[in-house]
Protein backbone atom coordinates (compact mmCIF):
# COMPACT_ATOMS: atom_id res chain seq x y z
CA UNK A 1 0.00 0.00 0.00
CA UNK A 2 1.14 3.50 -0.82
CA UNK A 3 0.61 6.41 1.58
CA UNK A 4 0.30 9.86 0.02
CA UNK A 5 1.30 12.83 2.19
CA UNK A 6 0.61 16.35 0.88
CA UNK A 7 3.08 18.81 2.41
CA UNK A 8 2.81 22.58 2.26
CA UNK A 9 5.64 25.10 2.21
CA UNK A 10 4.81 27.82 4.76
CA UNK A 11 6.49 30.60 6.74
CA UNK A 12 8.45 29.01 9.61
CA UNK A 13 6.39 29.00 12.80
CA UNK A 14 9.03 31.01 14.68
CA UNK A 15 8.74 33.98 12.33
CA UNK A 16 6.71 36.93 13.60
CA UNK A 17 4.68 37.68 10.49
CA UNK A 18 4.18 41.34 9.56
CA UNK A 19 1.51 42.92 7.40
CA UNK A 20 2.82 44.97 4.46
CA UNK A 21 2.26 48.72 4.92
CA UNK A 22 0.05 48.87 1.78
CA UNK A 23 -2.27 46.17 3.16
CA UNK A 24 -1.76 43.91 0.14
CA UNK A 25 -0.59 40.93 2.15
CA UNK A 26 2.10 39.85 4.59
CA UNK A 27 5.84 40.35 4.21
CA UNK A 28 7.28 37.19 2.65
CA UNK A 29 10.60 38.46 1.24
CA UNK A 30 13.66 36.96 2.94
CA UNK A 31 11.49 35.16 5.46
CA UNK A 32 12.45 31.65 6.59
CA UNK A 33 10.23 28.99 5.03
CA UNK A 34 9.63 25.44 6.28
CA UNK A 35 7.38 22.41 5.98
CA UNK A 36 4.08 23.14 7.69
CA UNK A 37 4.50 21.58 11.19
CA UNK A 38 1.32 19.50 10.85
CA UNK A 39 2.58 18.11 7.52
CA UNK A 40 5.83 17.11 9.21
CA UNK A 41 3.76 15.14 11.70
CA UNK A 42 1.89 13.56 8.75
CA UNK A 43 5.18 12.49 7.12
CA UNK A 44 6.37 11.01 10.42
CA UNK A 45 3.16 9.03 10.87
CA UNK A 46 3.35 7.66 7.32
CA UNK A 47 6.96 6.58 7.90
CA UNK A 48 6.03 4.83 11.15
CA UNK A 49 3.19 2.97 9.42
CA UNK A 50 5.62 1.86 6.71
CA UNK A 51 8.21 0.82 9.29
CA UNK A 52 5.59 -1.35 10.98
CA UNK A 53 5.09 -3.12 7.67
CA UNK A 54 1.60 -1.75 6.87
CA UNK A 55 2.73 0.25 3.85
CA UNK A 56 5.29 -0.19 1.11
CA UNK A 57 5.82 3.35 -0.13
CA UNK A 58 5.50 6.92 1.19
CA UNK A 59 4.98 9.55 -1.49
CA UNK A 60 5.04 13.26 -0.62
CA UNK A 61 3.39 15.90 -2.81
CA UNK A 62 3.36 19.66 -2.77
CA UNK A 63 1.45 22.22 -4.79
CA UNK A 64 3.15 25.56 -5.31
CA UNK A 65 6.14 27.30 -6.87
CA UNK A 66 9.45 25.62 -7.79
CA UNK A 67 10.83 26.52 -4.33
CA UNK A 68 8.61 23.82 -2.80
CA UNK A 69 11.30 21.39 -3.94
CA UNK A 70 13.21 22.39 -0.79
CA UNK A 71 10.42 21.14 1.46
CA UNK A 72 9.94 18.01 -0.66
CA UNK A 73 13.69 17.27 -0.36
CA UNK A 74 13.41 17.71 3.42
CA UNK A 75 10.57 15.19 3.48
CA UNK A 76 12.65 12.79 1.37
CA UNK A 77 15.51 13.23 3.84
CA UNK A 78 13.15 12.21 6.63
CA UNK A 79 12.53 8.96 4.75
CA UNK A 80 9.80 9.46 2.13
CA UNK A 81 10.47 7.38 -0.99
CA UNK A 82 9.60 9.84 -3.74
CA UNK A 83 8.10 13.26 -4.29
CA UNK A 84 5.75 15.01 -6.69
CA UNK A 85 5.64 18.75 -7.23
CA UNK A 86 2.55 20.20 -8.86
CA UNK A 87 4.14 23.41 -9.99
CA UNK A 88 2.19 26.65 -10.13
CA UNK A 89 3.00 30.24 -9.27
CA UNK A 90 -0.56 31.15 -8.37
CA UNK A 91 -1.85 30.40 -4.88
CA UNK A 92 -4.64 27.85 -5.21
CA UNK A 93 -7.61 27.94 -2.83
CA UNK A 94 -8.33 24.91 -0.58
CA UNK A 95 -11.02 23.55 -2.94
CA UNK A 96 -8.61 23.70 -5.88
CA UNK A 97 -5.82 22.13 -3.81
CA UNK A 98 -8.25 19.33 -2.96
CA UNK A 99 -9.14 18.88 -6.64
CA UNK A 100 -5.46 18.69 -7.61
CA UNK A 101 -4.81 16.16 -4.84
CA UNK A 102 -7.82 14.14 -6.01
CA UNK A 103 -6.29 14.02 -9.49
CA UNK A 104 -3.00 12.81 -7.95
CA UNK A 105 -4.88 10.13 -6.02
CA UNK A 106 -6.48 8.94 -9.25
CA UNK A 107 -2.99 8.51 -10.74
CA UNK A 108 -1.20 7.10 -7.73
CA UNK A 109 -3.94 4.98 -6.15
CA UNK A 110 -2.71 5.26 -2.52
CA UNK A 111 -4.49 3.28 0.20
CA UNK A 112 -4.23 6.12 2.71
CA UNK A 113 -3.68 9.87 2.52
CA UNK A 114 -2.42 11.74 5.58
CA UNK A 115 -2.54 15.56 5.64
CA UNK A 116 -1.92 18.21 8.25
CA UNK A 117 -5.07 19.42 10.02
CA UNK A 118 -4.23 22.97 9.07
CA UNK A 119 -1.60 25.01 7.30
CA UNK A 120 -0.28 27.66 9.69
CA UNK A 121 -0.29 30.40 7.03
CA UNK A 122 -3.94 30.49 5.93
CA UNK A 123 -5.22 28.57 9.00
CA UNK A 124 -7.93 27.13 6.75
CA UNK A 125 -8.29 23.62 8.15
CA UNK A 126 -10.26 22.53 5.06
CA UNK A 127 -8.18 20.63 2.52
CA UNK A 128 -8.28 17.12 4.03
CA UNK A 129 -12.04 17.25 4.56
CA UNK A 130 -12.60 18.54 1.00
CA UNK A 131 -10.37 15.83 -0.44
CA UNK A 132 -12.36 13.24 1.52
CA UNK A 133 -15.56 14.57 -0.06
CA UNK A 134 -14.12 14.49 -3.59
CA UNK A 135 -12.79 10.95 -3.23
CA UNK A 136 -15.83 9.73 -1.32
CA UNK A 137 -13.44 8.31 1.29
CA UNK A 138 -14.09 8.37 5.03
CA UNK A 139 -12.22 10.95 7.09
CA UNK A 140 -10.71 11.24 10.56
CA UNK A 141 -9.53 14.76 11.29
CA UNK A 142 -7.37 15.95 14.23
CA UNK A 143 -5.84 12.52 14.81
CA UNK A 144 -3.83 11.86 17.96
CA UNK A 145 -3.50 8.09 17.49
CA UNK A 146 -3.68 5.89 14.39
CA UNK A 147 -3.73 2.06 14.29
CA UNK A 148 -4.02 0.10 11.06
CA UNK A 149 -5.26 -3.46 10.74
CA UNK A 150 -6.33 -5.24 7.55
CA UNK A 151 -8.59 -2.87 5.69
CA UNK A 152 -9.44 -0.62 8.66
CA UNK A 153 -7.91 2.36 10.40
CA UNK A 154 -8.75 3.09 14.04
CA UNK A 155 -8.23 6.76 14.74
CA UNK A 156 -8.47 8.65 18.01
CA UNK A 157 -9.35 12.29 17.43
CA UNK A 158 -8.96 15.41 19.56
CA UNK A 159 -12.45 16.91 19.85
CA UNK A 160 -14.03 19.63 22.00
CA UNK A 161 -14.41 18.13 25.44
CA UNK A 162 -12.11 15.12 25.01
CA UNK A 163 -11.23 12.30 22.64
CA UNK A 164 -13.26 10.32 20.13
CA UNK A 165 -12.32 7.05 18.42
CA UNK A 166 -13.58 6.15 14.93
CA UNK A 167 -12.90 3.24 12.64
CA UNK A 168 -12.62 3.93 8.95
CA UNK A 169 -12.71 1.62 5.94
CA UNK A 170 -9.56 2.06 3.86
CA UNK A 171 -8.82 3.88 1.64
CA UNK A 172 -9.25 6.88 3.93
CA UNK A 173 -8.18 10.43 4.71
CA UNK A 174 -6.54 11.30 8.04
CA UNK A 175 -5.49 14.76 9.24
CA UNK A 176 -2.93 15.16 12.01
CA UNK A 177 -3.11 16.97 15.32
CA UNK A 178 -0.05 18.06 17.31
CA UNK A 179 0.13 15.10 19.67
CA UNK A 180 0.05 12.33 17.07
CA UNK A 181 3.82 11.93 17.21
CA UNK A 182 7.08 13.78 17.52
CA UNK A 183 8.77 14.05 14.11
CA UNK A 184 12.33 12.74 13.74
CA UNK A 185 15.27 14.83 12.55
CA UNK A 186 16.94 14.09 9.24
CA UNK A 187 20.37 12.48 9.64
CA UNK A 188 23.13 13.92 7.45
CA UNK A 189 23.63 10.76 5.30
CA UNK A 190 19.87 10.79 4.62
CA UNK A 191 20.04 14.41 3.51
CA UNK A 192 22.68 13.37 0.97
CA UNK A 193 20.64 10.33 -0.10
CA UNK A 194 17.53 12.47 -0.53
CA UNK A 195 19.20 14.39 -3.35
CA UNK A 196 19.08 11.25 -5.48
CA UNK A 197 15.51 10.23 -4.70
CA UNK A 198 12.97 10.77 -7.49
CA UNK A 199 11.15 14.11 -7.61
CA UNK A 200 8.66 14.42 -10.45
CA UNK A 201 7.17 17.70 -11.60
CA UNK A 202 3.66 18.05 -13.02
CA UNK A 203 1.50 21.03 -13.93
CA UNK A 204 -2.16 21.60 -13.00
CA UNK A 205 -2.92 21.39 -16.75
CA UNK A 206 -1.37 17.93 -16.95
CA UNK A 207 -3.65 16.89 -14.11
CA UNK A 208 -6.60 18.41 -15.96
CA UNK A 209 -7.46 20.83 -13.15
CA UNK A 210 -7.50 24.53 -14.06
CA UNK A 211 -6.64 26.89 -11.19
CA UNK A 212 -9.78 28.91 -10.49
CA UNK A 213 -10.07 31.88 -8.20
CA UNK A 214 -13.35 32.42 -6.45
CA UNK A 215 -11.88 34.17 -3.41
CA UNK A 216 -10.31 37.63 -3.56
CA UNK A 217 -8.38 39.05 -0.64
CA UNK A 218 -9.38 42.70 -0.73
CA UNK A 219 -6.95 43.72 2.00
CA UNK A 220 -4.90 42.47 4.89
CA UNK A 221 -4.78 44.48 8.12
CA UNK A 222 -2.69 44.09 11.24
CA UNK A 223 -4.81 42.89 14.17
CA UNK A 224 -6.07 45.55 16.59
CA UNK A 225 -3.27 46.34 19.04
CA UNK A 226 -3.90 46.11 22.76
CA UNK A 227 -2.98 49.29 24.60
CA UNK A 228 0.09 48.91 26.77
CA UNK A 229 -0.56 47.51 30.22
CA UNK A 230 1.22 48.09 33.48
CA UNK A 231 3.36 46.02 35.86
CA UNK A 232 2.15 45.73 39.43
CA UNK A 233 4.43 45.14 42.41
CA UNK A 234 2.44 42.73 44.54
CA UNK A 235 -0.57 40.47 44.76
CA UNK A 236 -2.33 43.17 46.82
CA UNK A 237 -1.74 45.75 44.09
CA UNK A 238 -3.05 43.30 41.48
CA UNK A 239 -6.21 42.63 43.47
CA UNK A 240 -6.76 46.35 43.94
CA UNK A 241 -6.46 47.00 40.16
CA UNK A 242 -8.77 44.13 39.25
CA UNK A 243 -11.40 45.29 41.74
CA UNK A 244 -11.27 49.03 41.40
CA UNK A 245 -9.85 49.80 37.96
CA UNK A 246 -10.78 46.90 35.67
CA UNK A 247 -13.84 46.03 37.81
CA UNK A 248 -13.69 42.35 36.87
CA UNK A 249 -13.74 40.91 40.40
Amino acid sequence: MQILVPVKRVVDYNVKVRVKPDGSGVELDNVKMAINPFCEIAVEEALRIKEKGHATEVVVASIGPAHCQEQLRSALALGADRAILVQTDSTPEPLTVAKLLKALIDREQPGLCILGKQAIDGDNNQTGQMLAALTGWPQATFASEVTLNDDQAQVTREVDGGMQTLSLKLPAIITTDLRLNEPRYAALPNIMKAKRKPLATLTPEELGIPIEHRLTTLKVDPPPQRSAGIMVESVDALLDKLKNEAKVL
Binding site: V17, R18, V19, V26, I120, D123, T217, L218, V220
Partner: peptide, 9 residues
Protein backbone atom coordinates in the same frame (compact mmCIF):
# COMPACT_ATOMS: atom_id res chain seq x y z
CA UNK B 1 -4.69 34.33 9.16
CA UNK B 2 -1.12 33.56 10.33
CA UNK B 3 -2.19 32.80 13.91
CA UNK B 4 -4.08 36.08 14.12
CA UNK B 5 -1.05 38.18 13.13
CA UNK B 6 -3.07 39.45 10.19
CA UNK B 7 -6.75 39.92 9.44
CA UNK B 8 -7.80 39.24 5.84
CA UNK B 9 -10.87 40.80 4.23
Amino acid sequence: IYAGNAIAT
